[in-house]
Design a protein around this nucleic acid. Structure first.
Lengths: 256, 256
DNA sequence: GGGGGCTATG
DNA sequence: CATAGCCCCC
C-alpha cells in the first residue's frame, strides 16, 4: 500500500496537478489539505473519472481536507470531537482496515496570537482524540500538514527561523506529545538527511531554487504499521513548475 | 494605408494577440480601446520591438486608449476639450497627414442610468469637437468602439435587443448626428450584409459559435478619405480562441 | 463570463 | 507570491 499527502493550497487550482499525479503515481491513498472550498463547490465532477473514491469537508477560503482512495473508504468521521467546534481540518477513515487520520494542523499565525494557542490546544485535543479512539497497537496512520518542523534538519535556516510558529519549542513539544502517544515519523525512519522539504513559502524569493523550505508534512505510523513501512520519500514533482504550488507530495510505502 | 481598430478589453491580457496580429497583418495604424491600464503600468517594453510607434492614455480599471503606427504620430491630443473632464476615451493624432480620431464611446450601462445620458452627451460633445477642430473636407478617420449598432443588420437578434443602450433610437440618433457632420461608414460602403460583427458578449452562451454578436466598431471616413477607401473588413482572428477576447479586429484599406 | 482592482491570509 | 472572494463594469 502506498499512501501520500499533499497540501493543495486550493484544490480547485490543483485539479490538473492532482489528476496527473494520481494517474502517474497511483498511490492507494492521498490525503489533501487546504482544499479551500466549501462542500457545495467541491470539484466532484473533475475527480469523477479518476478511479478514486473521495470524501471531503471544507469551508470557503480557509482549511478544508479531502481523502482519496482506490479502495473503499469506510467509517468516515470529520473533525475533532472535543470543544470548541472544530474547523474543517481533519478526516478519519479506514481503508483496508488501516485507520487514516488526515489532519491540517493550525499554522498559528504568530507566537503571540490567539491562533498560536489554538494550535497548541489543537495538538492536545488531537492527543485526546487518539487516546479515546485508538490504541497504539492498532494500525493507524496520522498524515498531513502538521505545521511543525521537528528539528534543525527540517528547516532551511534553523538559527534564523527558530522561534517562528512552525519551528519553536512550544510547537515541537506539542507535536512530540502526540507522537509519543504511539507514532513514528516514517520519513525519519529511513533518513537522517536535512533539506528534504515539503513546503516553500511563496514570500521567500526563489525559495524553491534555493531550497529554502520546510518539512511540515508527515506520515506518522503506529508500531504495527511502521514495521511494514518500506520507504518514505518526497516527490518534488516537476509539473509543479507550470502552476507552482507551495507544497509538494510526500509518499510512504507499506507491505500488505 | 491600412488602418485597424480593436477593443482589447485589457491590453495587458492581449499583448500576445496584438503583437502576433501586428506582425501578420502589418496595418499602418491600429487604434486600441479599453486598455484598462494607467499610464505608468502601460506595457511599454512589451511593445518596444514591434516596429510601431505608440501613444496611450489610460486609468486604472476602466477605459483607456492607445494608438499604434508604423509612421510618425504627430500632433497628439487626448480626450474631449469640453466640460465635464473627460475620461481617457479618445486620442486624436495625425499619421501621414491623415487625422486619426480613436474613440471609446461610453457604453451607457442601462437606458435609465446617468451613464446613458453621459453617452448621449458624449456624442454631442464629439460632434462639437469635430466642428471646432476639423472641416468635413479634410482627411479625417473616426475609428474605434462606438458602442452603437446602427441598424438591424448590426445585431444578432434585432427585435429582442432593441431598446438596449447600444441599439435604441436615442443612441442611433446620437451617433447619426455625428456621422452627418461629414462621415461615411466604411464597412457599409462595401457591404449590405448583416451578421458581420465585431463584438460578442461574454455572457451570451456560445455567442461566438452562434454568431450572436454586435457590430459596434467602425471606421468612419470623411469624403476625401472615403473616395480612397478600397475595402473594409472584419478579421475574426482564429488565435482569439486561445485567450478569447470579446471584440475582434476591423480593418480598412485606403489608397495613398 | 471574463476583465481589473482591492483586501485578507499565509 | 499566490490563493479566495468581493466589487465594478461591460
Amino acid at each position: 500500500m502506498i499512501v501520500a499527502t499533499f497540501n493543495a493550497n486550493s484544490i480547485r487550482s490543483r485539479i490538473g496537478i492532482i489528476l496527473d499525479w494520481l494517474a502517474e503515481q497511483k498511490p492507494d491513498v492521498l490525503c489533501v489539505q487546504e482544499t479551500k472550498v466549501q462542500d457545495v463547490d467541491f470539484p466532484v465532477e473533475a475527480f469523477g473519472d479518476c478511479g478514486y473514491e473521495f470524501v471531503f469537508r471544507g469551508q470557503k477560503k480557509y482549511n478544508g481536507v479531502a481523502l482519496f482512495s482506490r479502495y473503499p473508504i469506510e467509517d468516515v468521521e470529520f473533525g475533532l470531537d472535543s470543544e470548541p467546534a472544530d474547523e474543517p481540518r481533519m478526516i478519519t477513515a479506514f481503508v483496508n482496515d488501516v485507520a487514516i487520520v488526515n489532519t491540517y494542523v493550525p499554522q498559528g499565525t504568530s507566537p503571540d496570537s490567539e491562533r498560536f494557542q489554538y494550535k497548541l490546544d489543537w495538538f492536545k485535543r488531537l492527543h485526546r482524540y487518539f487516546e479515546s479512539h485508538f490504541s497504539p497497537d492498532e494500525a493507524v496512520l496520522w498524515m498531513g500538514d502538521l505545521n511543525v518542523a521537528m528539528d534543525e534538519r527540517d528547516v532551511h535556516n534553523a538559527k534564523t527561523v527558530w522561534g517562528s510558529v512552525c519551528y519553536c519549542q512550544e510547537s515541537i513539544d506539542a507535536i512530540s506529545d502526540v507522537v509519543e502517544w504511539g507514532f513514528e515519523d516514517m520519513f525519519r525512519k529511513f533518513s537522517d538527511e536535512g533539506g528534504q522539504y515539503t513546503f516553500w513559502d511563496y514570500r521567500v524569493r526563489n525559495g524553491v531554487e534555493r531550497n529554502a523550505g520546510w518539512r511540515l508534512d508527515y506520515v506518522m505510523a503506529t508500531a504495527a504499521m511502521s514495521a511494514k513501512c518500506r520507504r518514505c520519500w518526497v516527490d518534488k514533482e516537476p509539473r509543479m513548475k507550470e502552476r507552482p504550488s507551495d507544497h509538494t507530495f510526500l509518499l510512504a510505502e507499506f507491505d500488505d
